[in-house]
Design a protein around this nucleic acid. Structure first.
Length: 466
RNA sequence: GCUCCCUUCGUCUAGAGGCCUAGGACACGGCCCUCUCAAGGCUGUAACACGAGUUCGAAUCUCGUAGGGAGCGCCA
């Protein structure tokens, strides 16, 4: 709303298809999406599948399905195309080759013949000497003759970017504010692997630029790497996007969110029955403060997003808060939608009855069983209630039931006259005997849905042995 | 080891020198309502990591300390 007159931003989400959509990634995707939508800009999806080992076609599909489920639709991407395609890095080899050539021709990059063992040793040595373990530049000054000699030995080179010395790289982070790094702290890094595939620092930066991305939003873990990408783009004469680094999403133990914390992917929450609007509302408030505390429908979220209120500190994900948004989301569903969400072909009465007592579809299972005539064992509190009422109470209740034709009001009226009990003393033992639980939906309707035989059996069993 | 980042109630956060005896939301407790739970209404507990400084005045600025995190990879 307030920001709609700002110039359109182009944002992107650039996952690697090596797993399903992680909650932390889902959140940066959401922020990026909202930012673009808020300004009438564009949101791009780019698949970073340069790691052929770990990238899988099924993950790519699942990633996109999870994003669609969350409603994060993209304007340009591998499936919908766009002017800057292709949108999967595995298909952008020609573009990268061009840039490698340029960098090599201008001596801004050079082949490196160091072996993994040599690099490992060098790092170890530097660490031991109390210095940052960065590439020592062995191959930077190689003469053409030396290169030919190494190639002749069958060594396949990687390509390294020649980091300029004595430079101060400054930029304004959209979240952290002004940043300054020294190029002398940064070693020459690989931009093309020995096998010819592009390395992250390179293809990620170069693609953002080429695709017209104006605002990159990503996790804090990339903050210290940003100067590399800036130097690279500068060397190439390419436009630099603005960068913003949000604090990481961590689990309840404070460690970065992972499988250890149970569900860590959007997919798992979806499978458990969380609504997309619940997940959206939760992510919206993790490391971000919108302009409202209230539940926000997905369609209105862009208007409530405030990019200047993105958080620097790590945000802790707690399921209890997600549960709150689930409750809010559920309240806004029609009964037909709830029935579909429960997915068990329940009757309309049943759905209406349990909808306020259910947060996840799994919660309905117990009530379905109660109505069907199955009873779970009582816990300590519930046994106490039954015992306190006594066998005579249930005998009277059984009798009253026969004269009330399934109507709770009539039943309790008779029972009240016969036992002198009222209020909670009257209803609680009845509820526990009939449903096996101290809490739950409206008893009158529950009673109506229960088969008479079941009701008789339950009351009788307590009339005999309590 | 070096460089960088972070630190307000249990959790998410508001706060950009006086509006702060620090506000909201979730969670938790109490009361009301009620057959129970939920919903709703009212209400309570609970935080500026620590220490110096700057200032008439600091959660807010500076510097230290502590704790946490990231990067320094032919992983993204």
């Amino acid at each position: 709303m307030s920001s709609s007159n700002e110039s359109p931003v182009v944002t992107r989400f650039a996952p690697s298809p090596t797993g399903s959509l992680h909650l932390g990634n889902a959140r940066t995707a959401l922020f990026s999406y909202l930012w673009a939508r808020q300004t009438g800009g564009k949101f791009i999806l780019r698949i970073e599948d340069t790691d052929a080992e770990r990238s899988q076609e099924r993950f790519r599909g699942q990633l996109m399905a999870d994003m669609r489920w969350l409603g994060l639709d993209w304007d340009e991407g591998p499936d919908v195309g766009g002017p800057a395609g292709p949108y999967a890095q595995a298909e952008r080899g020609d573009f990268y080759a061009l840039l490698y050539e340029r960098l090599s021709a201008e001596a801004l990059a050079y082949p490196c013949y160091c072996t993994a063992q040599e690099l490992e040793l060098s790092r170890k040595l530097q660490r031991a000497a109390g210095r940052a373990p960065r590439y020592d530049g062995t191959c930077r000054g190689l003469t053409p003759a030396q290169r030919i000699e190494r190639a002749a030995r069958g060594l396949r080179p990687s390509l390294r970017f020649a980091v300029p010395g004595n430079r101060s790289i400054e930029f304004i982070d959209a979240v952290h504010g002004p940043q300054r790094f020294a190029s002398n702290d940064i070693g020459d890094f690989v931009i093309r692997r020995e096998d010819g595939t592009p390395a992250f620092f390179f293809c990620n930066a170069v693609d953002d630029s080429a695709m017209g991305v104006t605002q990159v939003l990503r996790g804090d873990d990339h903050l210290a790497n940003t100067p590399r990408q800036l130097m690279l783009l500068e060397a190439l004469g390419m436009r630099c996007p603005a960068y913003g680094h949000v604090g990481l999403l961590v689990g309840e133990d404070g460690a970065p969110l992972s499988k250890r914390h149970g569900s860590a992917s959007a997919h798992e929450f979806r499978e458990r029955g969380f609504l997309n609007s619940a997940v959206l509302n939760q992510l919206f408030r993790l490391g971000h403060t919108g302009d409202t505390d209230a539940w926000v429908p997905a369609a209105e979220m862009p208007a409530h997003f405030r990019p200047q209120h993105l958080g620097r500190a790590p945000a802790r994900f707690e399921e209890t808060q997600l549960l709150h948004w689930q409750k809010e989301s559920l309240e806004r569903l029609s009964s037909a939608q709830i029935a579909q969400w429960l997915g068990a072909g329940d009757s309309a009465e049943f759905v209406e009855l349990v909808r306020h007592n259910v947060l996840l579809p799994a919660d309905a299972v117990a009530w379905r069983a109660v109505v069907r005539g199955e009873l779970a064992p009582l816990d300590a509190e519930e046994r106490r209630v039954v015992a306190a009422a006594g066998a005579a109470f249930f005998a009277a209740a059984g009798e009253a039931y026969e004269h009330s034709s399934g109507d709770l009001k009539a039943l309790t009226k008779l029972l009240k006259e016969r036992t002198g009990r009222k209020g909670s003393d009257l209803f609680m033992p009845l509820r526990v005997a009939l449903t096996g639980k101290a809490h739950g939906p409206e008893l009158a309707q529950l009673l109506r849905l229960m088969p008479p035989d079941t009701v008789r059996r339950r009351l009788q069993s307590y009339a005999q042995n309590t």
